[in-house]
Amino acid sequence: MSREAILEGLRTRVADGGAIVVAGVGSGLTAAGAVAGGADLLATYSTAIYRILGVPTALAFMPYDDTNAVTLSLVPEVVGRAAGVPVIAGLGAHDPRRPIDRLVSAALDAGADGLTNEPFVGIYTPEMRADLDRAGYGFTREVAMLAEARRRGMLTLGWAFDSDEVRILLGAGVDVVGAMAGITSGGAAADVRRAAFDGFAAMTAAARAADRNAIVVLHGGPLADPAAVAEALAYTGADGYATGSSAERTPVIAAVRDTVAAFRAVPLRPRAG
């Protein structure tokens, strides 16, 4: 689907008063589930794949796998179950062995309609990010990858950890800003929750100041269920929410657990003698 058509669909959704839902999926099966639930966009990236494998998602930020190979191999599976819903691939722009233009080509070849900067270096501390930037693997390279994807007609979702990053992403032509509050933790203490909400609000405001029509989705921190997302959207004025563990690991585990338990509760016919 063309970038323009996708954006038009998102704008219509917002104009109709509905929150945009970007569903993060790590398998064809959960992609199909997300589509059936009405997801506006699908996003597939390595942390989603790891949570489906049942291994810690921090692996997307540690050196035990080739995260881009993992994601690129899953994109066709997700596209095959997307039933026309646009698919965004999350790629690590800092890959020392894959230049940015090849990453973008690979995402297009795999059938992705869009690109996002995940894994991102925003997960690390400022000191480590400074060292990464100096070695050429920082946020700057994430922005360059998204700009290249935009140039080649892909929809771009840019993840930001603060207002400065929001402005840089919009300056590079990113279509949808993702305001990120870090790893989803759910029921956080009230002050932590308030800080995350204020962070979301600041990033949303920064986006709107840079571009009145900017589309902003939220993710992470206290946003683990629909009630928290409703509160955050009301507080910030953002346009939607990107699901992660909240619409994949958590419901999958609960559904499988409860179903197996229900089967196990089925009694046998009493044995004779």
């Binding site: 540690m62 050196p63 035990y64 796998d65 080739d66 995260t67 020392p96 894994p119 070695a135 693997y137």
Partner: peptide, 16 residues
């Protein structure tokens, strides 16, 4: 290979 040592701490290879 001309990259920083930190490349070995990102998810772009099977370290072991």
């Amino acid at each position: 290979a001309g990259h920083g040592s930190l490349a070995g701490y990102l998810a772009y290879g099977d370290a072991n």
